[in-house]
Design a protein around this nucleic acid. Structure first.
Lengths: 145, 145
DNA sequence: AATGGTGTAACTTATAAAGTAACATCAAAT
DNA sequence: ATTTGATGTTACTTTATAAGTTACACCATT
């Protein structure tokens, strides 16, 4: 498969909405910033809306963050767009007639769950607000140079 | 793409070598346990050998762990087989002529590095030895029922 | 030398992500 | 009320990566 950019693009959308709240927030405008296409943006916005991170309105391009950026975590966004795709994947096609093949799936599910939990705890500690601060700081530095 | 099972299959190989050390350790035998094919097993064993986790010999099927299982971590295996594939992927095709598109790549690289570090710390805390203990315990329970 | 496995490369297939197109639906403007 | 323009969603196509397959030189043991 290709590497998924759903999380990156979803964060991009939220940051774009937060920063450009007074400008054109159409899916086409956001797609131009992502260098992607409007349908992808609308699909991701749909997932963000269902996760209650973003409010949108059909017909008019006026999406808004559903709550302040300091109360939206990277984990919230991850759950919104990658809920059913864990970071590590168990091979579920092993031979049950073998000590290893018959048990390693459950063993790895446990181990991977610990890794996933650690990653998600870190994601929970990163807010959209902090990401936006970082984006703005980098923009300052770009304009300085 | 398809979901990568490299890490799972590499752990499978190491556990198989550790548990079945007196039996047939040919790539074909291990492939049968993974329900995969010998070439995949040999490719993964090559990566494990290059990472100095496994010793193999051409011509004879006698691979061995390069060091005790309690000194091989899940992180070691991850680095061996997925070194160049981080858990989260930045979209590197965003529009630089935009505050968000021009800076979000660097911002997300930083955030994702923190997530990766948290995940890797947890992987480092999980040893092959503990996974093998878990596999054996589950086998006991299977035989009990 | 013969046998049988490894190590590795080239090619094919499968599958998930992203791109594309189409269109009903809704909101705003006139 | 009708027109306009964007959304929400689906279906289909394209692309990229993992896994499967094949082939064969190489090595070790017999």
């Amino acid at each position: 498969m290709r590497y998924s950019h759903k999380l990156s693009d979803a964060v991009h959308i939220l940051a774009y909405v937060a920063i450009y709240h007074d400008d054109d927030l159409s899916s086409a405008a956001i797609a131009a910033s992502i260098e992607s296409n409007p349908a992808l943006v609308r699909r991701l916005m749909g997932a963000l809306r269902r996760a209650e991170l973003l409010t949108t309105q059909q017909g008019s391009a006026t999406p808004q963050l559903a709550r302040p950026a300091d109360r939206i975590s990277l984990l919230d966004v991850y759950h919104a767009v990658e809920a059913d795709t864990p970071l590590l994947h168990v091979d579920d096609k092993t031979n049950p007639a073998c000590i290893v093949g018959g048990n390693i799936q459950a063993t790895l599910r446990g181990a991977y769950a610990e890794v996933q939990d650690a990653a998600e705890r870190q994601m929970a500690a990163i807010t959209l607000a902090s990401l936006i601060v970082d984006i703005r700081q980098r923009e300052q530095q770009r304009n300085h140079a």
